[in-house]
Design a protein around this nucleic acid. Structure first.
Length: 359
DNA sequence: AAGTCGGGGGC
DNA sequence: GCCCCAGACTT
C-alpha cells in the first residue's frame, strides 16, 4: 500500500525546517565547491566536529583552484584529527578533475559528479539538491533512520542494497520546490528530533504522518543487524633521540593513516614479544642509552582495530643511511607534519615529560 | 556483500 | 564498554 501523506509530510517538514533549522557555516553559501567540502567532511562525522575544520579549511582553500594547487602534506595537516584521511586526498583529486575536465565548474548532474573521486551517491545528491536546487535524493544513515520510521520500512539498513529502497522513497517524497531544504530537513530532523535513541516524537513536526509513531515502534527502527568486530594489535613504539632530534617516519602511501607521520613502530604478535634488536636492524640505528624503558602504555581504538602501544624512550646513534620515509626531526619541525591522533597523544605526553618534568 | 578506513560523543 | 555518525572505495 502506498504512503498516503506525501503532500502533508513534505510540506510540514520543510516548514519546520524554515523555522527551526540549525545555523551552520555551510548554509550561508550556495557555492558548489564549499557544499562539496562540507559534505565530504560530514561523511561519518558529526556536525559539531566538522564546524571548526570547515572554517579553517575554507579560509585556507577558499576556491576550488586553491585546493587543486595545495601541497598534499599541508592538506593532510588541515585534515589532522578529522579521520578518514583518504577523504582529503580524494577531495583534492576530485577538485583537480573538475579544474581539468570541466573548466573549474562543478558538474550539475549525477552521472558526472559520481565519477569524481570521493563523490558517491549521497554526496552527489547533496551537492545537486543543495547547491543546484535539483530534486535528487541524498540518502545517508540519518535519512534511512528517519524514513524507516516515517514509512515503517523494516529492511536491514546494514545491507548495501537496502539504500535503493530509501532512494526510491525520497524520489517520491522530495519537495519539488525545495529539494535542498527537504534533504537538509531530513538531516536536521534526524539530528534534533528523530534521534537514534530516545526519539522526541512528541516534539516531531511530522508525527501525524509517521507510520512508526502510529504503530508505536518508531524507537525500534531502523533494523540494523551487522555488527563490527575489532581486533587487537600490539606495537613497540620507539621515541628515539639523537642530538635533540627524534627519529620519525612517514607511513606508506596506501592503507591505514596513509602518508601520515609516526614514531617508529614495531608490530608484535604477543605483548611480551621483544623487538629491540629487530628495531635496531630495521632502522639501522644503535641504541646507546635507555632513558625510560616503559615510558608509557598507550591504547588507541579505531573502528575496526585497537592499537596497544608500549612506548620506549631511548637514545640512539645516527648510523644510516635512512630511506626517504625516515628522518630525524626537531620538535619544531614535527609540528608541521600531519600526525594521527595516537601519535599526537604520545607527543603530548612527551612534551609534558620534557618541559614539566620534576627532575 | 563484506572489509577497510578515524575519531569522538552519548549513554 | 558499545553504538553511531551528512559514506566511499576496494575486493
Amino acid at each position: 500500500m502506498k504512503y498516503p501523506y506525501t503532500q502533508q509530510f513534505r510540506q510540514n517538514l520543510v516548514e519546520w525546517f524554515h523555522r527551526e533549522q540549525r545555523n551552520l557555516p555551510w548554509r550561508h553559501t550556495k557555492d558548489p565547491y564549499k557544499i562539496w567540502v562540507s559534505e565530504v567532511m560530514l561523511q561519518q562525522t558529526r556536525v559539531d566536529t566538522v564546524i571548526p575544520y570547515y572554517q579553517r579549511f575554507i579560509d585556507k582553500y577558499p576556491t576550488l583552484e586553491s585546493l587543486a594547487g595545495a601541497d598534499e602534506e599541508e592538506l593532510l595537516k588541515m585534515w589532522e584529527g578529522l579521520g578518514y584521511y583518504s577523504r582529503a586526498r580524494n577531495l583534492q583529486a576530485g577538485v583537480r578533475e573538475v579544474v581539468e575536465k570541466y573548466g573549474g565548474t562543478v558538474p550539475n548532474n549525477r552521472h558526472d559528479l559520481q565519477k569524481l573521486k570521493g563523490v558517491g551517491p549521497y554526496t552527489a545528491g547533496a551537492i545537486l539538491s543543495i547547491a543546484y536546487n535539483l530534486p535528487e535524493h541524498a540518502v545517508d544513515g540519518n535519512v534511512m533512520r528517519v524514513l524507516s520510521r516515517v514509512l515503517h520500512i523494516t529492511e536491514d539498513i546494514s545491507l548495501p542494497r537496502t539504500r535503493k529502497i530509501f532512494e526510491k522513497a525520497v524520489d517520491e517524497l522530495i519537495h519539488p520546490d525545495y529539494p535542498g531544504d527537504f534533504n537538509q530537513a531530513l538531516m536536521d530532523l534526524g539530528a534534533m528530533i528523530c534521534t537514534p535513541v530516545s526519539p522526541k516524537c512528541l516534539l516531531c513536526p511530522v508525527r501525524e504522518y509517521c507510520l512508526g509513531f502510529m504503530e508505536g515502534d518508531a524507537d525500534q527502527l531502523p533494523i540494523k543487524t551487522k555488527k563490527t568486530k575489532s581486533k587487537n594489535e600490539y606495537y613497540d613504539v620507539y621515541i628515539a633521540v639523537n642530538d635533540g632530534k627524534i627519529l620519525f617516519e612517514r607511513r606508506p602511501s596506501e592503507g591505514l593513516l596513509a602518508n601520515m607521520w609516526q614514531f617508529p613502530m614495531m608490530p608484535k604478535k604477543q605483548p611480551s614479544e621483544n623487538t629491540w634488536e629487530p628495531f635496531e636492524l630495521k632502522y639501522n640505528v644503535t641504541i646507546t642509552k635507555v632513558l625510560e624503558e616503559n615510558f608509557v602504555e598507550q591504547k588507541h581504538v579505531f573502528s575496526h582495530l585497537t592499537w596497544n602501544m608500549s612506548c620506549h624512550l631511548i637514545e640512539i646513534s645516527e648510523n644510516g643511511p635512512f630511506p626517504d620515509s625516515v628522518q630525524f626531526v626537531t620538535l619544531k619541525e614535527m609540528e608541521a607534519l600531519p600526525l594521527p591522533v595516537p601519535m599526537a597523544k604520545i607527543m603530548n605526553i612527551l612534551n609534558r615529560y620534557i618541559f614539566h618534568s620534576p627532575e
